[in-house]
Amino acid sequence: MSRPRKDPRAARAAHLVPGGARPRFDLAALPAASGRPRRDPRAEERLALVPGTLRRRLDRAQRAPALAAAAPASAETVDAAPRLRVIAEPAYLVALVPDAPGGRLSAHDRQLFGAARLLADAGGGAVLAFVEQPGEEFGPAGADRVLALPVSGYDPEAKALALNAALAALDLRHVLFPETADGGDLARRLAALSGEPFFAGAESLSPKAVTRAARGRRVEQRRAPPRLISLAPDAVAPHAGTLHEGLPVALAFPQPTGGAIVSAEFIPADPAKVSLAEADFVVSAGNGVSDLEAFRALAAALRATPGASRMLCDAGLMPRAAQVGASGTVLDARVYLALGIAGAPQHLQGVAKCEHVIAVNTDLHAAMIERAGLAIVADAQKVMPALLALLQQERAS
């Protein structure tokens, strides 16, 4: 054999302090036979603690810079900054029409951008977004071009006519819609106007095939992607990684004519009577809330739907329909405000789909504090009247 034989006596001697029989405790000081520095678990444990204390870090992401600083100088640094991708002359265009409720992209809209990028990147195409108002968030979401429609507000008839004109004037290989109340209606109107084949409720998408379940989910329908497609929720992951320029473009749309819809107005529902499964903003009370009158006043002032943890519902302080969690209602809300809720595993399952989570709790290490994007480490009984005072002050000014 060409490999040198290991000397066990020399290996044991390397583990001893020179001049004594005591073994080394600083394992990082041992000579590495392979040339790679040996991992020091004690150093990693120290990095996991707040300096000067024995308390573990709440934000574990702060360990990454410290570990990078402790790495050897020969290690290569990786630049994780996303790069800007510019497609000057695309081979074709893949268009999408996001709902963008309230002027901002929803999670379903971002999945639509991911599906459009999947179809466009397969053959050197570009993504074109039809929007009501151009903005800065469409480029990072995955749009190469942004085209403003000459229609604002709720007017699906005029919007379908404008999209039909764009479908005839531009080289659009595919047009994607979210399978929602507004997006699905608009897609079907455009299919009726243009006569193009339409695939509704796609549950998986690739450049070669699009599929959906049918007949009570007993069979799967599959075909090549047609020109018009509506995408079901969670069918494709949102776009991530490269940035795109989101360049505004113009198109001469025909003059809109008067349709059947004379005027339309959105009438918001009473948040206190909306089901938790359909609520957009939910405020929940936990075991740390004893003043339920102040909690209901805060929910009404924020125009949010009231919820509760299982402990309050079991005690009869809140109705069973207000229970949030795996054994209650699983939320799909945009904002969730948890007051005095520690965060049991079943409760965390109920808020897993919430986009923004705000937690108020006295325990710094509560599971809900760790789950939240914004945490207030304070007594919920003191935070509620402070929020009510701020809301009243804002309305008076």
Rank of each mutant, 00 (worst) to 15 (best):
L190A: 02
R173S: 09
D109Q: 14
R320K: 08
G125C: 09
Q111Y: 00
V151Q: 01
V236Y: 00
P254Q: 02
G153L: 09
P23H: 03
R85Q: 10
E278T: 09
F130L: 11
L30V: 14
M318W: 11
G343V: 08
S152H: 10
Q346P: 03
L390Y: 08
S263Y: 09
G184I: 13
R222T: 13
A69Y: 12
A322W: 15
Q381H: 06
L193R: 15
A367M: 10
A71N: 13
H244V: 01
R117P: 03
L96Q: 01
V330G: 06
V127E: 00
A285R: 00
G350L: 05
R36N: 08
R188I: 02
L387Q: 05
R227H: 02
G183T: 11
A148E: 12
G124W: 13
Q381W: 02
Q133A: 12
H244S: 06
P306A: 04
H108Y: 12
A116R: 00
A168T: 11
L84M: 14
E203G: 10
R218Y: 01
A29D: 07
H244M: 04
V210K: 00
A389M: 10
C313F: 09
A352L: 08
N164S: 13
P31W: 01
Y154D: 09
L317F: 09
I376D: 03
D26K: 13
Y154P: 08
R334A: 15
G325K: 01
A301P: 08
P268M: 04
D155M: 08
A192T: 05
P140T: 07
G328Y: 07
A308G: 13
G183N: 12
A272E: 13
L176P: 00
P256F: 03
V262T: 10
A169R: 13
E370Y: 14
L251Q: 04
E293I: 12
M1P: 02
A48T: 05
N287V: 10
L170T: 01
S327M: 11
A375P: 10
G258D: 02
A141W: 05
I376E: 02
L387S: 04
I376L: 13
R223M: 15
T53E: 04
P37L: 05
R56C: 08
R117N: 04
T242D: 14
E136I: 03
L247I: 05
P197R: 14
A107T: 14
L391Y: 06
T362G: 12
L147M: 07
T242I: 07
N361Y: 02
A301Y: 03
A299G: 05
A322G: 01
A73V: 14
A315Q: 14
V283N: 00
D182M: 14
A372T: 06
A75C: 10
V219C: 01
A66Q: 13
L186W: 03
A380P: 05
P385K: 14
H347Y: 15
V360Y: 03
G103A: 11
R46G: 07
G135S: 15
A166F: 04
A264N: 04
L93I: 10
P385C: 12
D144S: 05
A301S: 10
E293G: 15
I229E: 00
A120C: 11
G124L: 07
A372D: 08
L49T: 02
R188V: 09
H356I: 14
P37R: 12
R5A: 13
G343Q: 03
G114E: 09
T242K: 14
F266Q: 09
R395T: 13
D379T: 09
G307N: 01
L84W: 08
R55E: 13
A250N: 06
